[in-house]
Nucleic acid binder design. Structure first.
Lengths: 227, 227
DNA sequence: TGACTATGACTGACTAGTCAGTCATATTTA
DNA sequence: TAAATATGACTGACTAGTCAGTCATAGTCA
């Protein structure tokens, strides 16, 4: 049973990713149905965990939101805690996969990084995924497994990729500050701050993240000549 | 029987009291004692909330840590929620007070900002206060009152102060990037990232925050001529 | 000063309620 | 129909908040 659900989990990670199965075709076979349910649970759990945090989230609410009985959740996940951990994996893996599919190294380093930034802007800042980042920051200390996973799969890879880009930029003479390669965090920091800002302070003082990131890149690469 | 057990309980509660009134002056009057207890509760609650988050923190644990009965907490705070909100205020206000006592504008803007940074490094990054920042990021969305307060008292003031410094730097020709004044967040971002990094990833990859901030300032002001 | 009373800070057992996880039963599928 | 799934009522552990009772201290009086 454990095995089975795990297997299903892998499969569903894909279909679980975007929208859930709301009022769709009854799904011919059992496996497909199970997938849909699982996806609905993942989607619902995501919403609830983001909105309330781990401890304050009720499984009853997740079940209700997913349109499923509470017992059904336990057919797919061992318990609340491992559910949360698995959830983070399920949602993050496709993101990593997409990021790993790097755009071809054409054009200037600045263009490359700008492409990254605009992608990040569209896909993360101010979206559910952005909230997930905040959730990980919030729960990380209480879920070492989550923090470890996130560091290994996202942070360390991201840092390495940024470092490579920075070194390329330095080699090509686009970036002056050579020490920047030692702290790719500096390159990423404003983007992360934008994520947090949007979920905490957007109502007090909306932040034009796109413009801010542009200014930050100007700082690193020097002002743009072209318009 | 009730009497007896209560009496014994009292005794044990006292001897169990580790934190506050150990070896201190017994506090002459009641008011002073009450203050001590209140302080002990605040301290204990801080630790517990930081370690477990709001929802997962038990008032019994706070009471035990403070060396106080649970009922005593309710003599000082209305309930768990308002306790948390008040707590943030209590801890943050003195910090704001200290920051408001700005150092005199002597020397270069870079020196000024460097003084700020080194202060931040010492007083926030990797300390209990740093954890508090993370706690606010974590609980903010569920405690609008806390997020509001934090924005009003800390963020907006900090941003304003940084903006003033940046404008001064631009006026004096120390800072090239004029648009930076529009986004003081960029100046502060690496410091915030350092705070978060320390509490989430320090064990995986320790971060030399001091050096990183130096590099970041080099980026903004240009490399230092002096060693 | 010493005895006696009043005060209110403090206690912790208790109540009422919540919620993760279970499992006997019902439903659906092949 | 047998097997596989799904359900949701139920259980027991746990906890926020209460309150009747205690007792060290402050205040008063002789």
């Amino acid at each position: 049973m454990m095995k089975k659900s795990t297997k299903l989990a892998n499969k569903s990670a894909q279909s679980a990713e975007p929208a859930s199965a709301r009022g769709e075709v009854p799904a011919s076979n059992r496996a497909a149905r199970a997938q849909e349910r699982r996806a609905a649970i993942v989607e619902a759990a995501m919403e609830e965990f983001i909105a309330r945090g781990f401890a304050a989230t009720r499984l009853d609410d997740i079940a209700k939101r997913a349109g499923v009985a509470k017992g059904t959740i336990y057919l797919h996940f061992k318990d609340k805690e491992s559910m949360f951990e698995e959830l983070v994996r399920i949602v993050i893996v496709p993101v990593v996969a997409r990021l790993t599919a790097l755009p071809p190294p054409t054009g200037s380093v600045r263009d490359l990084i700008e492409a990254f930034a605009s992608n990040f802007l569209k896909e993360v800042i101010g979206t559910r995924r952005g909230d997930l980042v905040r959730l990980i920051v919030a729960e990380g200390p209480r879920f070492p497994a989550v923090a470890d996973f996130y560091y290994r799969e996202v942070v360390s890879r991201g840092i390495a990729a940024m470092r490579a880009l920075i070194e390329l930029g330095i080699a090509r003479g686009e970036i002056r500050e050579k020490d920047l390669a030692r702290y790719p965090q500096i390159l990423v920091a404003p983007a992360m701050i934008a994520v947090i800002w949007q979920s905490l302070f957007a109502r007090h003082a909306p932040l034009d993240a796109q413009d801010m990131l542009r200014v930050h890149l100007d700082l690193i690469f020097g002002e743009r000549r072209t318009t």
